[in-house]
Design a protein around this nucleic acid. Structure first.
Length: 301
DNA sequence: GAGCCGTGGTA
DNA sequence: TTACCAAGGCT
């Protein structure tokens, strides 16, 4: 796949002319004014946004992010508080383990990096909750580095442009990384711009559901569009939610989140009717460190 | 590597 | 209404 693509694009200048330049120019006009993109936003602000944006839409992140940075403007401020405060402030963003990991990352930054978010990709990867994507995103957006930022938006955009596939597979392949690396401009500043621009194109125009191809700056070279935007995505196994342990865990944690005091077992019981699943979910929350069990009560860590 | 981990909006 | 989707990471 990559090889065939390289045959068609043997010179990087062609790639830049045909893809990078139009997309970056489009970005200059169409980019949303998001607070974590503003020049005055700190690397910590970028890091917090990336944690919150993992599997959660921008619209739901804006307000919690603002309050978070207001309360904890630097990593050390968050690190000085119990993890339970992070879980509580996380509210209903979902996947509350991200709040735990963000707190743990703040502790690591405070203790091991003198309170400064590291700029090195490798050091970023060491932080809890920071994987391949998030490390690259922070290094690129907060520090202007040349990084392969391969999120689901970029994967969808490149898959459509170069492969003619409607949606990317479940996990990024080596070929996708190699291709994204080949596309990446040499100049760090332009590479960072491209990273943000390609993500934005996926978020605003080349969307999963209803792409607006008429607004696309690279429609002429898009393989998917040339093929008639076929629905050729391999069907995914939906995970479902109603009645699952995840929903049960969410119901239990909500009770704890909304109580300033430890709660009794009887209060937990009210959160979910089915006792076996309820107990299993509660134990899993304790095992994950999201809930602490005392002799007679339960509380956030 | 497949499965798990929350929540709310949208068609 | 059900199903899918939204800037992933971890085991």
């Amino acid at each position: 796949m990559l090889r065939g693509w390289l045959v068609r694009h043997t010179r990087r200048v062609d790639v830049s002319d045909q893809i990078v330049e139009p997309v970056v120019e489009w970005f200059d006009e169409a980019a949303r004014d998001l607070p974590w993109r503003r020049p005055e936003c700190s690397p910590w602000g970028v890091l917090v946004s990336e944690f919150m944006l993992q599997q959660t839409p921008v619209s739901r992140v804006l307000e919690p992010w603002r309050r978070w940075l207001e309360r904890w403007p630097v990593p050390a401020a968050l690190a000085a508080e119990p993890a339970g405060e992070a879980i509580r402030a996380w509210g209903r963003l979902g996947y509350p383990r991200r709040a735990m990991r963000l707190h743990a990352a703040a502790v690591a930054i405070t203790e091991q990096h003198d309170g400064q978010v590291p700029s090195d990709h490798r050091q970023l990867l060491e932080l809890p909750g920071v994987g391949s994507y998030t490390a690259a995103a922070i290094a690129s957006f907060a520090f202007g580095q040349r990084q392969v930022v391969l999120d689901t938006n970029v994967r969808r955009v490149l898959g459509r442009l170069l492969d003619g596939t409607a949606l990317p597979g479940p996990t990024p392949t080596r070929g996708e990384y190699a291709r994204a690396e080949a596309l990446l401009p040499d100049e760090p500043a332009l590479a960072a711009r491209w990273a943000a621009a390609s993500m934005e194109l996926g978020a605003l125009v080349c969307t999963a559901k209803r792409p607006e191809c008429s607004r696309c700056p690279v429609i002429e070279i898009c393989a998917w569009h040339a093929a008639g935007t076929p629905d050729n995505a391999v069907p995914r196994r939906g995970q479902g939610y109603a009645g699952t342990d995840r929903q049960c865990r969410g119901a239990i944690l909500r009770v704890l989140r909304e109580s300033e005091e430890p709660v009794s077992a009887a209060q937990i019981d009210l959160a979910w009717p089915e006792p076996v699943q309820r107990e299993r979910a509660l134990q899993s929350l304790i095992a994950d460190g999201l809930v602490v069990a005392t002799s007679l009560e339960y509380r956030l860590p």
